[in-house]
Design a binder for these strands. Structure first.
Lengths: 212, 212
DNA sequence: CGACAGTATGTCACTAAGTGACACGTCGCG
DNA sequence: CGCGACGTGTCACTTAGTGACATACTGTCG
């Protein structure tokens, strides 16, 4: 029974996504055909469409990698801690241990997010990825506030928080693509403070402090 | 010189959008072909693709109508007024005067927004429409704070505000489609307060009060 | 080890989305 | 009237995406 395991499925999707993103970046989305992606990955074109509903969404897994770290950190946020403290500790820990996503993938994600600013097809994918982020944030925030994830207030906080995270990602991504030093964004302390402040502001202070 | 005027172009786009939205609602997006939309409007299929980059985006003008009222009201928000007061006055005025968008269009927009919850193709269009809203909000907020629209703080406020407006629209839309009385949302006073509160919260209090 | 079941993939024919090129009708202008 | 500009229709064409079927792979049970 069982078919392909989720992790296996995720791996092939990521593999396809990497090649697609590389091609999108090198020659543009419109100029990249499904056949080309398939050839680059080494599978048949049909397989591409089995794993992705359309060409643009081939970029989604790579784009997702760009936010998956932060989302993972937020999932593990204990109720009795300040957001900035938790972020700082976790991001520092990730810097020492094996990072969950490779630097090359982060770079690809950054490039895709930057491309999304001008390529409308990719923008839709990017927004869909952020939409997914928002739903997951809804669960986290709902949990923290002791409310169901589909509660109106929870959804508002989640949407606002996801929105400012997106703006940050776009902002940093644009700077990096423009040639800014990547190290500039390696200051865990400052980064944590900025994210925490943005989320706290966007939720009117509802998310950020310990909850009793 | 000059070609088709913008208003003319907008009119044909809206016309196409109405028929497309009706068909999407009646038989689903996938089951609706470009040829069908063209026939319903009474133009050639080629003309459809001249005005829209793809099938799903045919719904965008109608979807946009759903937020255009609020956006117009916000554009005219004087610096020395509280948001709730301005909203209340303007929405009440619009109720008396000729409304900027017909009730039928509002209903179509509501249906499309509801459909977007399950149809991924439409969701992308809906998110793109919200993205547009966000950009316009950026101009309004930047103006209000005396900052350029691409300032990071302005963008964060605009994104968060656009996000909570979207959540509200989805929430109200879902209720109406589910059969709630439309009149329930005709209470201008309550509606103004809710929008104002949501925006004020999402911007950490930065947007909502008069600015000196 | 070997037969079997389930499923992911390849192949191929097919539908439909979307584009390019060109001809035609219309409208404003001298 | 003649001219130029532009929106639209027609048609051929490319390519995204699906359905159907054959095949190869993978794990399980005897």
């Amino acid at each position: 029974m069982g078919g392909m395991s989720d992790v296996q499925r995720a791996r092939i999707r990521l593999q396809i996504s990497r090649e697609a993103a590389r091609l999108f970046w090198d020659q543009g989305v419109a100029a990249t055909s499904g056949d080309q992606i398939a050839e680059a990955v080494g599978v048949s074109t049909r397989t591409i469409w089995r794993h992705f509903r359309n060409k643009e969404s081939c970029a989604e897994p790579v784009i997702m990698q760009g936010v998956v770290t932060l989302l993972g950190v937020l999932s593990a946020w204990p109720k009795d801690r300040f957001l900035e403290d938790h972020l700082k500790a976790e991001l520092a820990r990730l810097g020492v241990e094996e990072p969950p996503v490779s630097f090359a993938d982060e770079m690809l994600a950054t490039q895709m997010i930057w491309l999304a600013d001008t390529e409308p097809a990719l923008r839709a994918s990017w927004l869909m990825a952020c939409d997914q982020t928002e739903r997951e944030l809804g669960v986290i925030i709902g949990n923290r506030l002791g409310l169901p994830p589909d509660d109106l207030e929870v959804r508002q906080h989640a949407a606002a928080a996801a929105a400012v995270i997106r703006i940050h990602d776009e902002h940093i991504g644009a700077a990096i693509v423009a040639g800014a030093d990547v190290a500039e964004y390696a200051d865990v302390e400052a980064l944590s403070k900025r994210y925490a402040h943005a989320i706290r502001t966007a939720t009117g202070g509802a998310i950020g402090d310990p909850v009793i």
